[in-house]
Nucleic acid binder design. Structure first.
Lengths: 153, 153
DNA sequence: AGTAATTTGTTCGAATTTGAACAAGTAAGG
DNA sequence: CCTTACTTGTTCAAATTCGAACAAATTACT
């Protein structure tokens, strides 16, 4: 039973800022997408990833890893997007288990329509609040965190 | 209809790192608390805030603001904590509508038991991954974000 | 005082998330 | 070949979240 290394005041401030900023930003982004586009943030992220992907398609499990969420969560959200006609499923030739989520033309249109409002809220919630130096440092620090937490979830 | 100011590659990298880091850290913290303490992260945060507060009590609405969550969410989580005996409710003299959540001795003990494991995961998920300079810059940037998003949610 | 506007906490239903369990398919090693 | 181990995506139940609606209480204003 070791003595825990408690956080000093600077570390505590960083941790609290991390939590508060995450929640505030996330609430704003989710609300904007919901109110103006009828999309959840995970749904929007799925559309973005698919639009960037070769053939506009990605395997279900890879989607879960990209969005840092559960496989069942992806099944649920892709199901929603499929009902809305924004995505379709395609079974994977060569691996009978596999399923690709594929962006439809409608999905691409939806994404194009949603992107400007999304960028705007991302700017007003994070990017434009910081000086270029601050933003740079933020990207560096969080990039390090994201990278180092990758394998051993 | 203005031309949106798209994100440049640095801004995009910062935004993606923000999203990925938030999700990864949050999942680790939640899993640790759930597995080792049977607490959700919101529940743990409620205990922390109460422990720091004068008289170890805070009004429901203020708790919602502190945790950046909905009032109904607080009702739900305080209800859970109350069932577990970690918190009790006290009606507010002077304002008949008001309700204080009060930390019980049991709740304080629970928090003391949970804190070391929590600090450990916070360190291994964020604090200890960064140099002192990086952490400082992170605190500065996210502190700015949190502060500037405060009023106009 | 008296009426309108605001605040407080809860309830409710709908949406979402998670992990465990599962069936089906694939890969690895003898 | 063949048995064992892993991978894939879905289903399911349980837990959680949110916002809208609400009743009760307080505040602001005339």
């Amino acid at each position: 039973m070791e003595q825990p290394r408690w956080l000093d005041s600077g570390e505590m401030a960083a941790w609290n800022a991390f939590l508060e900023a995450s929640h505030r930003v996330s609430r704003r982004v989710e609300r904007q997408l919901r109110d103006q586009q009828g999309l959840s943030h995970p749904q929007y992220e799925i559309l973005v990833r698919l639009a960037e992907a070769p053939e506009r398609e990605i395997r279900m499990t890879e989607l879960a890893e990209l969005l840092v969420t559960s496989k069942s969560g992806i099944t649920y959200q892709v199901g929603k997007l499929e009902s809305a006609g924004l995505v379709r499923r395609r079974s994977c030739s060569g691996d009978e288990r596999g399923v690709f989520a594929v962006l439809t033309d409608e999905g691409m249109d939806k994404l194009r329509g949603a992107a400007p409002g999304h960028v705007e809220i991302v700017r007003s919630s994070l990017i434009d609040l910081l000086s270029p130096e601050q933003l740079d440092a933020l990207g560096d620090a969080l990039g390090t965190v994201a990278r180092r937490l990758d394998p051993r979830d």
